[in-house]
Design a protein around this nucleic acid. Sequence first.
DNA 1: GTAGGGTTAG
Length: 715
Amino acid sequence: MAASLSTALDVHFTIPKSDTKRPIFFTSPIRHNPTKKRLAISCTSSTSETSSSTKPPQNISESPSSKNPSLSDQLKPLSATTLSTKDHQAQLLSRPKSTWVNPTRPKRSVLSLQRQKKSLYSYNPQIRELKLFAKKLSGSGEDEFESVLETIPYPPTRENALLILNSLRPWQKTLLFFNWIKTQNVFPMETIFYNVTMKSLRYGLQFDIIEELANEMVSDEIQLDNITYSTIITCAKKCSRFDKAVEWFERMYKTGLMPDEVTYSAILDVYAKLGKVEEVLSLYERGVASGWKPDPITFSVLAKMFGEAGDYDGIRYVLQEMKSLDVQPNLVVYNTLLEAMGKAGKPGLARSLFEEMVDSGLTPNEKTLTALAKIYGKARWAKDAMDLWERMKSNNWPMDFILYNTLLNMCADLGLVEEAEMLFKDMKISEKCRPDSWTFTAMLNIYGSGGNADKSMELFEEMSKLGIGLNIMGCTCLVQCLGKARRIDDLVRVFNVAIDGGVKLDDRFCGCLLSVASLCDESEDFTKVLACLKQANPKLVAFVKLIEGEETSFETLKEEFRAVVRDAAVETRRPFCNCLIDICRKRDLHGRAHELLYLGTLYGLYPDLHHKTVKEWSLDVRSLSVGAALTALEEWMGTLTKFVQRDEELPELFSAHTGSGTHKFSQGLANSFDSHVKKLAAPFRQSEERAGHFVATREDLVTWVQSRIPSSVIA
DNA sequence: GTAGGGTTAG
């Protein structure tokens, strides 16, 4: 992966294929930077240095083949004057790691340390009337535009036109006005007119038009400056046209223009969003080596990138860099770092970082608190969550609707029903944070997980009244809850409302319906649920019918099961199989249940079900439904019976791992398992040392197995 | 939204 570092950068900076020159620019800073250690951590296969050593020695005197010099070409004078080709090759050969830095010359810059200056506006006494006119123009219809244009209160001089252009929106209006100024021929078009127009186009995500304008600038010989390039690059990024962002960055270098720190951090973010971590680090380090002191925005870009990758070492690197460069994180940087800590699974460090932030005198905003609430919820840190909540209230920290909804999700994670109800009430009486579909989904999750079907249905009715649509997640929670409460008629009603509301039913939802079907005792209910499921997934229902058919052969079952599994989303395959086994057991089709468990194992849905060491054999049923777990236990006992019959060697200990289910709402697989082994009088007992494990000794198990084998068989 | 760069939800 990391072998791509030097090659990828070469490509990005458009080094002609025929040109094998390895620019010195690409080799220097890493070796001399403290981040080398960090690179070594993040590169598992090789570092940039080893990757460069895999390249053939490169001829630095070779002339570039392209007309417009690339960045590396621009830097050619440096390399050409400091080392002859021969010397350089000798260097490369004598040192497998080909990094070389000229000790006598300063490093060549990759960015301009001076930010581009903006021109100052002179005061325009007609500002009020011109802004009013711009507002009128913005609000005019397409067909009125020209007639409104004629009412322009002052002649479109350069300053007047710029003022209007700056106040126009949306982008269609800006573009119309921009084109109109061009036709007036009152003054020559300058870069700033293009920049202002492009900015408006960027709000409208109109990358293609921006690119047209940029090309027009090139052909009309109007200079593109750093503001033009950064606008083009960020627009391409917002439109997910990353290739275009990189392309324009390269073009800038080729024309001989150095990026300033704004353009530079914009392109860093492009590489970051592409997940090109090594490239980002390399660019960052070269910038620093050029004398650049990155600002908080840059660190925010880096932190976000490492957060997305869940890379804790990277997050530490960002913190360390800010410290060593003496850059104080601002609120955005803290927010990004907190989010990143959450994604890297470090709730404790997020907590200390938050305290550090507060101690530094910063006041958390909605985003800070949203990040923390999410982290504490996912980590199931109820105490910290409640402390945070208290502080939010006593300090009057800001709230918005996303924070409210995140807090509700946190309540769902922690099983805090009353607290959720309080928040929900707060939202209803608030001005700005009225409950939306996310809010109701969170509440449906909370009541649904707690098995409160009455409250869930109240929410459902309330949503209908408020005209808030049910989404697929809320629908799934509701159907699951109603299914568990055996309120099948309500379930069908909800299902129909969802269908009418255009909810797109996914495999998870189908799995949920299938599990409800597996719970149904009454065949009438079973039929109703399958009728719903048929609308979402007719093949699945056909397969259920096939299972029930006595005449269905194993071969047919196998083929059709394969098709069902193949068509299902990966994460729903095992749940589907679990539910199908449950359905079999519920309908006394035990033979089918065993066939399905076999097929599920055959198609890899139950990897790691069995584990064997010399001393212990174990069965891990944690990812199985109750029916599937019991089927697996029976299957296992059958196998052991054969072992006993054949007098084969057995380990001292047998164990079954059910898990103990720490979540407040989790339904105990352990309990069902316990009652089943009691029913079978099997010698498995819940282990006191190992939570969530049932254990049996060889002696007890063999005795039990023998007691079940008819004497004729033993004889 | 003062010609340009970074952060919030299954």
